[in-house]
Amino acid sequence: MTAPTLAIDDLRLGFRGWAGTVEVLHGISLHIAKGERVALVGESGSGKSVTARLVLGLVQELRGARYSGRMAFEGRDLGALSRREREALRGDRISMIFQDPTSSLNPVYTIGTLFHEVLLRGTPGIGTAEARERAVAALADVAIADPGRVLSSYAFQLSGGMNQRVLIAMALANNPALLLADEPGTALDVTVQAQTLTLMQQLVARHGTSMLFISHNLGVVREFADRVYVIYKGRIVEQGPTEALFDNPLHPYTRALMAAVPRITGEGIPEIDEEQTGFYAPLVAHPGHSEAELRP
């Protein structure tokens, strides 16, 4: 039996500040099997982004951060890794795509230089010529018509949609086992967002990459993910396969979310109660989709 690409168990996180400790995550558990696309969906402040940052090891060193729980990548305990080992994983075996494509690319270097740097993480000592060859191939994969021009451009000379494709190509260039995508495409126009998501979907499937997809946009999640975790104020409240979860949401919070999304079929604006007590109800898993049942 192979270990899941990512397994998180009872992850807790708090920040100690002037007003005492603020709990951000109250013990969340989730996993991503090999080649699976899993969505973590929630509103702002739910703790969804900080979870991804914990996996990348970006939160642990912040002042006042207190965390506990277990995170394992392909069976290796991430907590037991040294800082150097964790950094070696980043950008090679685990990569990430952030929300705003243009600000994620350093404006001082050309895309070609940035791409070379990315490839160096996976293939130490790779030369300029070989890196360029691989970059051209990777950019062609994301349907960029003239990779040569893009490689000699700077991020600010390209459109948001083009930068997003460049980032996708970079994120997959080293064939990572896990891709973390934090609200990808939220900063883009709808038509461009739709195109890049389709593209990302195809590429991830072809590379067999496992993916954690973090989003507040229910529609995007429905179209992209195999399985969904719904997170509310640092707690996973519902988990299940995408279709079942959208057709038949079980948890009061998920139901409220689904009711609140405006629909293009024009069902009016729903009345949303200010009452939110039901939102703290315990985790509901769809049949056969609890952590215990899914994990080998």
Partner: peptide, 12 residues
């Protein structure tokens, strides 16, 4: 534009 909207239900 309409067909690029990410939707949440079968009807949509």
């Amino acid at each position: 534009l309409i067909s690029a909207v990410p939707v949440t239900s079968r009807r949509e």
